[in-house]
Every structure is written in structure tokens, then in C-alpha cells.
Design a protein around this nucleic acid. Structure first.
Lengths: 224, 224
DNA sequence: CGCTGAATTGACGGACATCAAGATGTGTGG
DNA sequence: CCACACATCTTGATGTCCGTCAATTCAGCG
């Protein structure tokens, strides 16, 4: 890793760590960025802070969110290993980012990436492609917000199932509160919907965070 | 029609007075695209059609939307004069586009624009910037979907007020049904919220489509 | 163990959808 | 210019999904 002038993201706490096995980063940020570690619930950057860096998840999960004045929290996305986050319209982050679980993140100076993109057409294309996919994801997210609780949870489970791995057993790195804030529901409603799915045999809970998708077709039907 | 590096900022060109002749397009599509006209409610493109073109509104209003299987329609955005739409992640449109009112639209071949962007760094930057701003807009939209009906309508009015023109009188080119489908509400709820605002003196209705913002601070307070 | 935060479950109320009717506006043809 | 048709908008009555408040259970950890 090219350790240039040790870029420090707005939040520290624990900076880059004496690496045990760090998974190898792939993608556009790999060779520009520096690896960092964040503890569970640690802030990676805050809303309204200058957006000087781009981030890529190596291990763990990251959430981005906005706080509403009424105290509620809207989670705009979960980022899993390989995902890039921190891409912004302006020079300022319009959301905060935190580690859902302990996480390794590659941090790259935005200006450096953009500078490289100037003459590396391929990198530029990757960044653009990344952004349009993010756009699509957010639109998808907006879509589920107008559906019923049952549909939102079903959609969420399917989303996590396809992203996490291709198995029928999903493991949720985030709490019920996180899920609720992502889906625009309350933890109670999320919990009730889970048990409802369990009772109908659509899913099974190994633990509260470990879900077996028993009837994926049913989830897909609901999600429709 | 030579619009070199016109800043991509949305050109809020339209006032209540409709433009007679064809307004001059500005921005990245100006010199590549061909002007077209669409009648009210006419389809511009459909979901799942190949995304071969980019579009810029010259006059009128355009809506993009997805149909849900239960027959409901989720409007993902309204596009006013100057706005560009049709930018997609893949090669296929993931939403449909229709003219809300009679509209003039500049249509440019996507491949041509992208080809140009290959060596015109400035154009490439504009496209990227366009996409990130669109991303921000959609995130903003997702945010209002988790609020109360009162807050959604207030937010909508403010959004339209800032986009339409800088006056305190907003003219809504779209129907109550359009507004409802944009806000994830029913027409009845939208209508009731409007009258509620009228009764509290927050707004006044010249006609059902012409709104005076009497107490913008109150709307902003609600929108918070 | 006992403590603490997370998750579940229950009772109840409120905000918004639904169903239905009426009012207003707009275009068309005689 | 009026009259009729039709779409759009408003208003009312009722139902329901989900939020709120509260209690209980469960899991992790010293």
C-alpha cells in the first residue's frame, strides 16, 4: 500500500492496525488507498464534514445515515466487503458513516483518485459506473419505502441474501434497530414481521441474526 | 446552439409564460441532440427498453416512474426545463418516462455523448457531476418517504418552489395523482393536507394547481 | 451467577388508506 | 354562448396497519 502522507479520515480512535491477515482490496481504490480499522459503532465520517476521501469496505459492514430533527435515523445504505462508499455530489458528506461491526476499510484521497481518473479513462469509467449503480440502489431503496412492512422486510432479506453470499442462510451483521431505520419501520414491527415469517415457515431463525430462507419464492412473491 | 462549457446547473428557464418558439438548449447535450416534442401523458421511453439516449427538458415537465405489481405507480422524479434525465446504470432503462405536460425535449444518442466524453474531460466531469447530483436528489426523495404526510407535502412544495422559480407562487404542472405517487400517499391525503395548509394560512390556492406560499418558514419548520 | 443491552410479545391508539359521494373545472359540440 | 360530458379535485365516514408504550424473555459477558 502506498502510504503517502498518511491520510487521516475525520474519525480516528483506532488508526491503521498492525494487520493480521488483511484481505486484499480490489477495485479502483486498491493501490491508492491506505487500510484502516474501525471498531463497532465507530464513526468513519460525519455529515457536513469535507468529503476528502473515498472508502472501500474490506471486511465488516458499514452504514451510512442521516439524522432527522425528530431524533429518528434514516439509514441510506449498508456497505459490505467490496463496496465503495463516500462518493458525494459536492465537497461535503451529506450523510454520516459508521462501522456496523468491526471493519477494515481502505481509504483513498478523493483528489488523488480524481486526478488519476483525469488520464486513466478506465478508472473514470469505473467511478461513473459505480455512481450509477449506487443511484440504482438508492432508487430501489426508495421503492421499498412505499410498500407494506411485510414487503419491506421480505425485500430486505432478499437483498441481503443476494449480497451476503449465494447461500440460503443469511447472516445479518446489523441490529433490528439498524434494519428498522433502513426500512423506515420500528424495531417492534420488524421483529413482529420476522416472527410472522417464521410462523408461516418462510424463514427460520438459527439465532436472531442468522436467518434461513426456507421459502425464497414466497419472499419474492411478497417483494413483488 | 453553441453552448460550450455551460455550467450544468439546472437552468430554471420556465416561468408561467410558455415559450413560443423553441427555447435554446444548454448544457452537454445541446450540440449533440435533436429537439423533439411530446404531448401530455405521452411516453418518452419505457421501462426495460434499451437506454440508447439521454434527454434534456427544454420546456414542460417530465416524470419518471416505475409501476408496482399491485398497480400502484411510484414516481421517482419530476424533471423541469434544463434538467437531464435518462441516465442509467446499465444499457436498459429501469424506469419509464412520460411528459406531464406538453414538452420539448432534446434527445442525444448516449453512445455519441459517451464517445465525446472519452476525450473531452470537461464533458465527462459534467456527466459525473450530473449523476452525483441525481443521486443526492434521490436520497433526498427517499428521506421524505419516511416522514408524515404533512411533512412530505411541505417538503414537496418547498422543492417545487426552489426549482420552479424563486417566487413565492408555485405553479404545479402535475396532478394531485402525480404528487401522491411521488410522495407515496393517496390523492385524498394530499388534497386534505393542502386544505389543512390553506386553513392554517400556510398557503393559499389561486387554483388547485397554483399555490401561494404564505408562510414559508412554517413549511420549512414542518419539513425539518 | 447477576447485569446489561437486544429482541420479542402484548394492548392500545392514531395516522393514513379505502370507499363513497359531491363539487369544481375543462373541453367539445350544437 | 350554453349545455353536457368527463376528468380532476375535495370532503366525509369507516377501517386497518403500524407506531407507541410497556412488560417479558433472551443472549452475551464480567
Amino acid at each position: 500500500m502506498l502510504a503517502t502522507s498518511a491520510p487521516l479520515a475525520p474519525a480516528y480512535g483506532r488508526t491503521s492496525a498492525p494487520v493480521r491477515s488483511i484481505a486484499l482490496p480490489k477495485g479502483p481504490l486498491a493501490m491508492i488507498g491506505a487500510p484502516m480499522r474501525f471498531a463497532r459503532n465507530e464513526e468513519i465520517y460525519g455529515e457536513d464534514e469535507p468529503a476528502d476521501y473515498l472508502y472501500q469496505v474490506i471486511t465488516g459492514t458499514v452504514r451510512t445515515f442521516k439524522m432527522l430533527d425528530d431524533g429518528r435515523r434514516q439509514i441510506s445504505g449498508f456497505y459490505l466487503p467490496g463496496d465503495i462508499f463516500g462518493v458525494e455530489a459536492g465537497d461535503v458528506h451529506c450523510a454520516s458513516a459508521e462501522a456496523v461491526s468491526d471493519a477494515q476499510v481502505v481509504v483513498a484521497k478523493r483528489s488523488a483518485v480524481l486526478a488519476r481518473a483525469e488520464h486513466e479513462t478506465d478508472l473514470a469509467r469505473q467511478l461513473w459506473s459505480l455512481t450509477t449503480r449506487e443511484l440504482q440502489r438508492v432508487q430501489q431503496h426508495a421503492l421499498i419505502l412505499i410498500k407494506s412492512a411485510e414487503q419491506r422486510v421480505a425485500g430486505f432479506l432478499l437483498e441481503m441474501a443476494t449480497r451476503n453470499a449465494r447461500t440460503s442462510s443469511v447472516d445479518l451483521t446489523m441490529s433490528r434497530q439498524d434494519i428498522a431505520d433502513y426500512l423506515g419501520l420500528t424495531i417492534e414491527t420488524v421483529s413482529r414481521t420476522f416472527t410472522q415469517f417464521v410462523q408461516s415457515g418462510t424463514i427460520a431463525l438459527q439465532t436472531s441474526r442468522r436467518v434461513d430462507l426456507r421459502n425464497r419464492a414466497e419472499l419474492a412473491r411478497l417483494n413483488a
